[in-house]
Design a binder for these strands. Structure first.
Lengths: 339, 339
DNA sequence: CAAGATATTGGAACCGGTTCCATATGTCAA
DNA sequence: TTGACATATGGAACCGGTTCCAATATCTTG
């Protein structure tokens, strides 16, 4: 019977039923089916039932793309992040995704490894798949980016990094100021000569800002800088260099807890006591940082709440058409026993 | 001039130019514009130029949704994972996303916290936004799920978990067998009485399978089981219980490196030497596991290569229409100094 | 130079929903 | 009984691309 109504070919070719098929089987117009599908008023119960059972019989489910074409909405936002394989970004995205889902928005993630070309290419891909907004990590300086955005008239939101000098709103940290908080703490503890271990600065605004904040502080008699990949092994290696240098510093400020962990392992191997001989300060407050030996003093960036704020602003913008508000978030000093 | 051609309203209302606008401005048909956009043959260079500059002038960019409606493709796959805030899943997704991008596919991530209802609801959302395939973590037992899939006729792939008893293909680990590898190692080292610390088993196939593998092993005189949340603090707490129990085990097998790390911290605080007094075996081989003191023996699940394999199969299925091949992946025993 | 092959170009249908607007039916007060 | 108005329902255009197929122009080749 269905065969007759739908045409045998359709059954055989295993083609999905369309709204018009449902209309035909139910003996109503497509307008009515659409009304039933979207719970619109002015449909009698009798017809509603007929349509429902036609839907049931045909195993019909509406086409998301056709819907998107009409409504102009995909309910999708894209996020460009350096990597997922980093606790900080993962924590941010986890909170972001949950909150976006709460607002009926979907998250497409695209990783860039901090490479500007990949960043722009992935931004293009995200727009091509219908993203309604873009979340980026730090400013994107590639010249094509701005043009891409203005062509597509799409909201952009900068995260992890707060700036008031960008055409785009930002929700993130004033990284320079936050590293000063750590420096104040070290200074208060009487440290005068310190070493800083940081991740790659190339294409990384966050790290550069943190370093800028440190460089602006003139109170210390000596600050040495050490660039390392964000890995425990690199932290170990950097620590080896630092403890060998003449005029060994009394404190090491690691711009990532991962590096700090490496340093602690290395110092422990060398039986250098923390914080008596060398104090260690981290950055990120990863989940294990409270459990190291001694527990690591660090800086907490509440990236989960950043995720929530970003999702909320996107919801305002996309679902209520209100402009996005920039927000500068605070870092919090967490004093434990490594300093 | 553009005003005249496009109609002043369009300019004022700031409406995006469409392909037909481009056609009008360039003085050609929409077919031709489409040809130019898609690099199709049989367009003269002169016309190609005219179209290109019309596109430029109007700041035109094609509508992804209209395209999707025609081609029937969204180039999007959805992944349902328990959480992003877990190194193992993050590492998997990082590799998966990169490889999918390589295959011209986009990844939408949806987190479920292992809750079956959320899982199904999010699956619905993913399909509603146009996902062409679904990646799930372990089997989904909610009754609505199978119906949803058959209605939408969408490929599903089970990951992290290998099974041959599912209607869906799976690419993952035989968790039961892998925990046996660890047990063999402990047995070979002469351990006879062991404690097992594992994460929540509710709704978690992976953990249950790992436990099943352990329970099938009858060689040990005593095995005690301790459930804990996957966190360092819970690992510490579980360790406290275990070292207090009568007939203290000679080895602790943690079904997650995170738990193992907590145990090591606790034992270190209690000055219990590893592995002499108690041996520790982990599971996951997280990045810091090689750097603990002593370095942690563990099991490596190459989740990054799992991500690549999943992406490759999806590419075969979606872009070449070949069936998905199930694959059982091997875990690798990594012997360091904690056992 | 004519006939046939090949390269260009456009008209119009189509993808699968949504929505504007017209029509039909029903209700109630005057 | 009739006019005014609310409720149900359908016809057809529309969203913005893609593509089938027909029409025209250009190029070969005998």
């Amino acid at each position: 019977m269905l065969d007759n109504l739908m045409g045998i070919e359709k059954q055989n070719k295993n083609i999905k039923a369309t709204l018009r098929d449902v209309a035909r089987v139910a003996g109503v117009s497509s307008t009515t089916v659409s009304r039933v599908l979207n719970d619109k008023p002015n449909v009698s119960d009798a017809i509603k039932d007929k349509v429902q059972s036609a839907i049931e019989n045909l195993g019909y489910s509406p086409s998301p793309t056709a819907r998107a074409l009409n409504t102009g909405r995909t309910y999708t936002v894209g996020a460009l992040v350096p990597t997922l394989d980093n606790a900080i970004f993962a924590r941010f995205l986890d909170a972001l995704e949950k909150r976006l889902t709460f607002h009926n928005l979907n998250l497409v993630i695209s990783t860039t490894d901090e490479d500007p070309k990949t960043e722009v290419q992935n931004a293009i891909d995200l727009l091509n798949m219908g993203a309604e907004a873009l979340i980026v990590s730090g400013e994107i300086r590639h010249p094509d980016f701005d043009q891409l955005i203005s062509r597509n008239r799409i909201p952009v939101i900068i995260t992890s990094y707060f700036t008031s000098n960008s055409p785009y709103p930002s929700i993130g940290y004033n990284n320079a100021q936050i590293s000063k908080i750590a420096l104040n703490h070290l200074f208060d503890r009487g440290h005068n000569s310190i070493a800083v271990i940081h991740g790659p600065t190339k294409h990384n605004d966050r790290t550069r800002e943190r370093l800028k904040g440190i460089q602006e502080d003139k109170r210390f008699s000596s600050i040495t800088y050490h660039e390392a990949d964000i890995s425990i092994g690199s932290g170990c290696a950097a620590a080896r260099l630092i403890i060998r240098q003449k005029g060994r510093p009394s404190a090491i400020f690691c711009l990532s807890d991962v590096l700090a962990l490496g340093v602690m392992f290395e110092l422990s191997r060398k039986s250098i006591s923390i914080p008596d001989e060398i104090a260690i300060m981290g950055f990120d407050n990863l989940s294990w940082s409270a459990h190291t030996n001694p527990p690591l003093s660090t800086i907490e960036l509440s990236v989960a709440s950043m995720g929530i704020k970003v999702a909320d602003e996107l919801n305002q913008r996309l679902n209520k058409n209100k402009p996005i508000q920039s927000q500068a978030l605070e870092g919090q000093l967490i004093i434990r026993h490594s300093t």
